[in-house]
Design a protein around this nucleic acid. Structure first.
Length: 501
DNA sequence: AAAAAAG
């Protein structure tokens, strides 16, 4: 049996790997590490969850033990498609590089340039970046790529999906021809093959057995729902309550960012312990939210497909697809968030009459029909919330035409979700430093008394103003010219006359 | 019918 000690890694690296509790490398690690150490180009075809990250981090650490970085001239560069993945790779360098004194710089969007510039100035041994911010720094002349000795391109097929390939080509051309390239992709569509032919030099190809399209340990179910958002929300709430016993934590996927925000707001309003994650959120909120979810401080995470692939969130008990994913591969990635490492997991997908086409392509892809969850859903109370009383008992599948549920409009009128998401992130943060008793979070199963619900909602609402200034600031700027500014509450009457015809 | 990433 091959162990890490057989792969040729340096003692410092081996020590850190052992300290992390690993002795046996995964197939992609065993395959890639020896070649990477011999400075060969590597083409690794592997899904996430195969130990792919360590397969480039470990040999890089060993190789980096020789030499030093100069200011603005990073020695190695790792390209990642999303900010979260980039941050995750950085964590790996911290974990396995604990015996090294390396400068690691993370260049991602959504955060200030200043810290990043300082790190570049100091000389980065390892630069981990998303393409946009990297090119931004490059164009400002703050970064030279002529000393990059090792280039890693991770999740290449996802970069393709995201339209990054032109950026990747451009970056590849800025890096010396003599570099070593480690290239990873889960699949090999023609565009990716072309890219490898262009930028890799007689690479060693390592392909790890493609994981069965969907893990055997995941129990998949379909759940019927009406097509209105409020109907889907009601079905989801019932489902979460019905599943509560075995529900440790769950990711709830939506197709659109707008729906992530709306569903998150709705769940919080209904006293679920929920957070949200999507790409338009403030980077600070994204980071905090993900961290609380990973730490188990947050039970439900409503997310866009940012969270579908790659993110290392171990051991999620449930995945709920609030929407049927439009691309069938996304279904596989989403439900792959549960049932990992042989553990059991459950995946529920809400299906409306409009989704049959996408459902068919998913079933074709995974090669089986997903069973319908008959459950006791029909016997469960549809809803207990007063603002949803009008549709109680009316049959979820057939709402009366032309009549909008009362709360739908009301939810729309509210200020956009961002402030609430930041508020929730702050809630999660506060929970870290305060004893649990002082921060009561209503667990999903509990059906609190009405008074308790009210008190809790008041508490939540009270926190929102903390983040208000940021948003008001922006709105004030947008509204300038249409309203008198600078008078506070003392606006002279003549200025309040409506000038519109 | 989308999301992601540079603002």
């Amino acid at each position: 049996m091959t162990t890490f000690a057989d792969l040729g890694l340096s003692p410092k690296v081996l020590n850190a790997v052992e300290a992390a509790g690993y002795t046996i490398p995964t197939p992609i690690q065993a395959g890639a590490i020896p070649h990477a150490l011999q400075r060969k180009d590597v083409l690794g075809i592997a899904q996430t969850g195969t130990g792919k990250t360590a397969s480039f981090v470990l040999p890089m650490l060993t190789l980096l033990e020789q030499g030093r970085a100069r200011a603005r001239m990073p020695r190695t560069l790792i390209l990642e498609p999303t900010r979260e993945l980039a941050a995750q790779v950085e964590e790996n360098f911290v974990k396995y590089g604990k015996n090294h004194r390396l400068n690691v710089a993370l260049l991602i969007g959504g955060v200030s340039f200043d810290d990043q510039l300082r790190k570049l100035e100091r000389g980065a041994d390892v630069l981990i970046a998303t393409p946009g911010r990297l090119l931004d720094h490059f164009e400002r002349g703050k970064l030279l790529l002529s000393a990059v000795d090792i280039l890693v391109i991770d999740e290449a097929d996802r970069m393709l999906d995201m339209g990054f390939i032109p950026d990747i080509e451009r970056i590849c051309k800025l890096i010396p021809f003599t570099r070593q390239t480690l290239f990873f992709s889960a699949t090999m569509p023609p565009e990716i093959t072309k890219l490898t032919e262009q930028f890799l030099h007689s690479p060693v190809r390592i392909e790890v057995a493609k994981a069965a399209t969907t893990a055997k340990t995941v129990e998949q179910k379909l759940v019927k729902s009406g097509k209105k958002d409020w109907e889907k929300r009601a079905v989801l709430r019932d489902l979460i309550r019905a599943e509560d016993e075995g529900l440790k934590n769950a990711i709830i996927f939506c197709n659109r960012k707008k729906d992530v925000s709306e569903l998150f707001r709705s769940l919080v309003k209904h006293d679920f312990d929920a957070g949200a994650l999507h790409g338009d959120m403030d980077q600070r909120a994204r980071t905090t939210m993900l961290a609380s979810f990973k730490d188990g401080k947050l039970k439900l995470l409503v997310a866009s497909d940012v969270a579908a692939r790659g993110l290392d969130i171990p051991d999620v008990s449930h995945v709920f697809n609030f929407d049927v994913p439009i691309h069938s591969e996304d279904y596989v990635h989403r439900i792959g968030r549960t049932g990992r490492a042989g553990r059991s997991g459950k995946a529920f997908t809400l299906v409306t009459p409009a989704d049959t086409k996408y459902l068919a392509s998913i079933e074709k892809l995974i090669g089986e029909d997903i069973i319908w969850h008959d459950g006791d859903l029909s016997t469960l109370p549809v809803s207990t919330e007063p603002d949803e009383a009008p549709r109680r008992g009316r049959g979820r599948g057939k709402p009366e035409p032309k009549r909008r549920p009362r709360n739908e409009g009301r939810e729309r009128e509210r200020p956009q979700s961002e402030i609430d998401i930041i508020a929730a992130a702050e809630r999660a943060k506060e929970a870290e430093v305060q004893p649990v008793e002082e921060q009561p979070i209503v667990r999903t199963a509990e059906k609190p008394q009405k008074a308790a619900i009210k008190a809790d909602n008041e508490q939540r609402r009270a926190r929102v103003p903390h983040t208000e200034p940021r948003r008001d600031h922006r709105r004030d700027r947008d509204d300038m010219g249409s309203a008198p500014v600078g008078f506070g509450d003392e606006i002279p009457a003549f200025m309040l006359i409506d000038t519109k015809v």
